[in-house]
Amino acid sequence: MIYHSAKDILQHCQETNLPLHQLSLDAECQLTGKSSEEIRLYLSDVLTAMFEAIELGLNTAHTEIKGKIIGDDGIKLARREAPICGETIAKAASYALSTMKVNAGMGRIVASPTAGSCGVLPAVLKTLSEQRALSEDQLIDGLLVANVIGSLVARNATISGAEGGCQAEVGTASAMAAGAAVYLAGGTADQVFHAGAMAFKNLLGLVCDPIAGLVESPCAKRNAMGATNALLCAEMSLAGIESIVPFDEVVEAMRRVGQAMPVALRETALGGLAATPTAIQITTDLFKTSSTF
């Protein structure tokens, strides 16, 4: 990303009257030397891969796609009638769980920003696409806006669980999805960053503690939470609610929290849920047949 902060970007948007997705596209063309057509074509492939993964995970015929720990949670949620959290939230959570199962089962997904957080953005985009009958071009604009948020986090903090914990992965994915949702619902660039900031704030401090070191538990359910958190924060922002702390400062806070996090809580599977008796038992059962050294 050629811009250094949300503040820079908002200022540039205001001065040039450039829509946020266009700013993202122009910046990527400059950065990669690719044409806007090439980038939009790639993002069209991204959308196809994202939605294929959701559908594959919800397809009850494909039993070969499964995790080592997690099950068909997306299907369970999709089957529920009259969900107490409403159709939209239930759908988004189901889509996120579905993608994460496909990821665990070595199916094809899109790391966005990482494989461990690959369920969030597709879930929010598909849910909104169905709710508001959005075109592929609009969804690509949403991806470009999500890219602005993700790029700023990668540049100024980290998107790696090993460096910053789950807040850096699912937190970033949730902020990206919240920003995209605001934009797709007609919000302003300012509202995009408020939604992103709020999504981050809600997940600040979230540790990365994968059972048996696998990208499954608690990752999948945290993706479901990341997707619904994105929708909540988008809704708040669209209602005119603002983040008290601006986006750039929230990202910096996330970076500092990540740095302060002990190594045991940063993807090493040595702490948190990964160190519980149940997790240790699961790990032993899973790998008792494989060789040790």
């Binding site: 993202s24 070595m106 899109v110 790391a111 494989a115 993700g150 790029s151 990206m176």
Partner: peptide, 18 residues
């Protein structure tokens, strides 16, 4: 660190870990 859109929304890949 230098990131482009292809790192942030990608890669399209077989799971589970980048």
């Amino acid at each position: 660190k230098s990131y482009t859109l292809f790192d942030i929304i990608g890669p399209i890949m077989i799971g589970p870990s980048s």
